[in-house]
Design a protein around this nucleic acid. Sequence first.
DNA 1: TCAATATAATTGACATATCAATTATATTTG
DNA 2: CAAATATAATTGATATGTCAATTATATTGA
Lengths: 149, 149
Amino acid sequence: MNLPLPSETIFHVIESTIKEYRKFAQKNISEQIQDMTIDQGLVLLFLNKHPDLTQKEIAELVFKDNASMTRMINTMVQKKYLKRSMNPEDRRRYKIEITDKGKEVLETLPPIIHHNRNSSLKGITKNELNQLEIILNKIKTNCTKNMIL
Amino acid sequence: MNLPLPSETIFHVIESTIKEYRKFAQKNISEQIQDMTIDQGLVLLFLNKHPDLTQKEIAELVFKDNASMTRMINTMVQKKYLKRSMNPEDRRRYKIEITDKGKEVLETLPPIIHHNRNSSLKGITKNELNQLEIILNKIKTNCTKNMIL
DNA sequence: TCAATATAATTGACATATCAATTATATTTG
DNA sequence: CAAATATAATTGATATGTCAATTATATTGA
């Protein structure tokens, strides 16, 4: 079996791309906001737009599992970005609120993220982006479809 | 600032694709080899092809940092997949050898990985793969180039 | 030569990833 | 209604990610 090395596959390219982007984006965030990771920032953005999200729902949006999300929100509460309060409608869930400190971040963060996205996509056409999305979705579908078997 | 939500960006698509692939691949590996993660498998594949790799070099190939690689190899030594011995040429480095147990894995693993790659790329043309690679490399270059600034 | 610098690997501290088990509350169904 | 089942979140255990500091050895250059 002459298997190409992992470093010669498209999966390697996909993974290294997203890792480079994350490193780049994290660096630009850290320069302006200390103690703020990309993922914590994403949580704030989602909660800001959709305040009623449960932990489980946020977890899916940022590709974490529930356990990680519990701990991530713990640290964000400790760092005073978020506040947890009871949800009387369904006492299994929490209501998660953004604190004033969290809202400050929501002023600072969007321009940084905007810049990150723009400069990492510089020179790439709309058409290329569409192509990219279509092909990646094919791969993704193949993976989820075959998972069931 | 009307920033699109992270879930609406191409980065979300890239990240979700690689995560689905990893989940899919891990599942197929776990069914046949217990106690073997994808990344541990990749380390074995690289070491098999290039026995003289240092920990630092392996780390780069699988996108880990040195600290993670130290710990990963610790656990692989504990699990008897690898053996560390001194390198008399340069005593800062180790010589890392694959044990018999590790070699067994190298018999079992390649067909699984082959199947994982094939079925997740089913229906995708050579041309699409080329396109994919070109576009992703553009993004990656943008990130690394701008990192210096 | 030997002092300064570079490199490979480790360690500590803390955050996150993952899996399985558990708790508390809701919902469904016999 | 009560028992069975489902759901949201937590917890424990272990692995990995990341950063900074440290150790041990090599290399370089005055």
